[in-house]
Nucleic acid binder design. Structure first.
Lengths: 177, 177
DNA sequence: AAGGCCATGTAACAAGTTACATGATTAA
DNA sequence: TTAATCATGTAACTTGTTACATGGCCTT
């Protein structure tokens, strides 16, 4: 039997709580794990189809608006339990702004700093959200662990943004470009 | 004309320095931007084929070991210059360990902490590398900017790993699972 | 009862990964 | 001179993204 991929595994994980449609699952994923594991609706439907074919999930009663809920089978629960016990691979960061900066000589420091500044409000907003989650105290230990990562990450990004002007000050731009 | 994707753009960016083969390009990418923009050799070859078709790049003289170098065309340089002037989209973080932690009740805190600990040496090593880059002083302003991000990021991860035991202490595991 | 929005899903395409193939050099 | 390894690349498959389609629900 094939390895479960992390997206499929997350779907099983969510279904453990009860029946959910593809739409629900995509929403749950966006809200709960979206900041460190992005999943689109299309992926969810594809995975549901495959999980059904593998007998890890089964369709429930269709409902209004073509809603098709799914539930976990025993095999699905077993497979998830196997998946979560396997050590997770390293993370990956994809940061287009850093790419732009890496070739930043084409633009020069001023343009780069403008571009970087645009992203700041997003990070501030997310940091505030995470902090309020922690302050409100409605999280369990596991959620607190992931949200705490978010706080540290956003703080790191913001502090880096603070340093940027100093780092790039006086950087030469290409003569041509 | 189609948007340039970031990987294709990076290839053009590297070729600005002179002729390079697909293999060279993959290496350069891994070394210089690999920590925030992962690129595989297969992708490089595919992009080179497309860039050639679009006239943004052209093959140079084939050499030993089937080596096929490419060089930037004027159109390629122009396209890159257009690309780098467009504001980069937000970053994406994909962190399987956080996914595991999000469903951590299936495992309980002890197993989670073991899994997390496994990753620590990698982050320590990377942090040390970035710091030595900065200390050695051989970087230009733009490289310093990206490496400084790396330092902040790795510090954030390590400090989060330090906090984890405290956060997860006493977390309940599932009765069943 | 018409218009707009929401929930649901599909289809086509683009990007990313893994496994394999091949011939040149280098080392034993 | 054989084996190992390196540089090069291709092919097949999996994941991820974008754009579209459809019909129920709600509001006026």
């Amino acid at each position: 039997m094939n390895e479960l991929n992390p997206t499929a595994a997350a779907i099983l994980g969510f279904l453990d709580a009860g029946e959910l449609s593809g739409y629900d699952l995509a929403q749950a994923a966006a809200e709960i794990i979206g900041d460190f594991w992005h999943v689109t609706r299309s992926q969810v439907y594809r995975e549901l189809a495959q999980l059904t074919a593998r007998g890890l999930v089964e369709p429930g009663e269709p409902a209004a608006r073509a809603r098709q809920p799914y539930r976990l089978t025993d095999a699905g629960r077993a497979e998830f339990s196997r998946w979560i016990a396997t050590p997770p691979p390293p993370e990956q960061v994809r940061y287009p702004l850093l790419l732009t900066i890496a070739f930043g000589a084409w633009l020069g420091p001023d343009r780069l700093l403008e571009m970087a500044a645009v992203h700041r409000p997003d990070h501030e907003r997310r940091l505030a959200t995470y902090r309020s989650y922690l302050a409100d105290g409605g999280l369990d230990h596991y959620q607190r662990a992931t949200v705490t990562f978010g706080v540290g990450y956003e703080q790191a990004v913001l502090s880096w943004l603070d340093q940027l002007p100093g780092i790039l000050a006086g950087a030469p731009a290409r003569a041509d470009g």
